[in-house]
Write a protein that binds this DNA or RNA. Structure first.
Lengths: 196, 196
DNA sequence: GTCTATACTACGATAGAC
DNA sequence: GTCTATCGTAGTATAGAC
């Protein structure tokens, strides 16, 4: 296996996925044609089909990349030594996603309702985020709030589920509502208070 | 204007929209063809196009009906004399939406990211729900919690935004995650506690 | 690996009879 | 108003040259 060739393949793959992402932001996953992606990427149809077997695969891979970026960012944040509070965690989640990402995220949810592969990816990544949040909250509840280990664990699970729900609501808000930064800040501060 | 004819038109319209709804649950808005809707409704293509100008219009109308049903149900609930708490409100919102409705709701959000008409409908209806919740919470904060009018108003606005976010998160949960009733009940009870 | 050109299909929408 | 039949197009995927 030539290593350089693999790196080049990965580069092409990213080139295609980033072009697809821009197309999805503009026209949505459904109304984006493979021709649109070829035009946006500067590649040809033939080239794209050597890297992806079908349009569905491009759609899934684009969403998967997006989901994984969010999960990785979260893992990095809770991995720091600072031991952020649940409120700070929520704030970081909110700040970490752009409007374009929120838009394509919503499209991915819509696709996931009828595409089992997409649904599996969404559920797996979302569960991953929730578990990372739960694990962090458990530590936080013990270290900062002085809870006992067993109650911290069960409280952290519920807390994580709630934080994820608010996060998901915030994604809807960011994608569809032309809210001002000030209004978003109020919203996040309010939610943070509730989980403080 | 013949009245019976209008009623008949409305019946056909509902016949088409209900068929479309079933198709969207099965295959999604994007992958449902007009032929699918004709087959499901028992009507013909020609007939459908006398009632709707395009497929996009059918998609928008189906989503609009779904959104309005949720808004009307909420208005009815807060219109009762019982003065439910925010927690009970959330519980009612959660119970009022089926998994199929949640699925198509998610598809509508995805469409709304690139279809201005759909986006307008979603935003308007969601704002309507939030306002209805805020108005109710304001009354509740004054009557049950004994808050002063001015602080109740500002607190109610924030509370309503938070409740909507959790509600939206719950829609995602209901549509994509095969959660058990018990787990959902825990989730809702936990959220309700937080807003009690 | 990448391109151009194209085969094949599926879909949205309409025409015209009844 | 409703049906059947069909037109035109758009879009996915592939074949074959380079």
């Amino acid at each position: 296996m030539p290593k350089l060739s693999q790196a080049r393949q990965e580069l092409r793959r990213q080139q295609i996925l980033q072009a697809a992402m821009r197309c999805f932001v503009r026209n949505g996953m459904g109304r984006t044609s493979v021709a649109d992606i070829t035009a946006e990427s500067g590649l040809s149809a033939g080239s794209i089909y050597t890297h992806f077997a079908s349009k569905a695969e491009i759609v899934q891979a684009t969403a998967q990349d997006l989901l994984e970026r969010r999960l990785t960012a979260l893992a990095g944040f809770v991995g720091e030594a600072r031991l952020p509070s649940p409120a700070q965690l929520l704030r970081h989640l909110a700040d970490g996603i752009s409007r374009d990402e929120a838009r394509v995220g919503l499209q991915a949810w819509g696709e996931a309702t009828t595409d089992p592969v997409m649904c599996g990816n969404v559920v797996a990544t979302t569960d991953g985020m929730r578990d990372a949040i739960a694990a962090h909250c458990e530590v936080w509840l013990v270290a900062v709030k002085g809870h006992e280990a067993s109650v911290a664990r069960s409280r952290a699970a519920g807390l994580a589920a709630q934080l994820m729900a608010v996060y998901q609501g915030l994604i809807v808000r960011k994608a569809l509502f032309g809210t001002t930064d000030a209004a978003d800040e109020t919203f996040i501060a309010d939610a943070a208070d509730r989980f403080a």
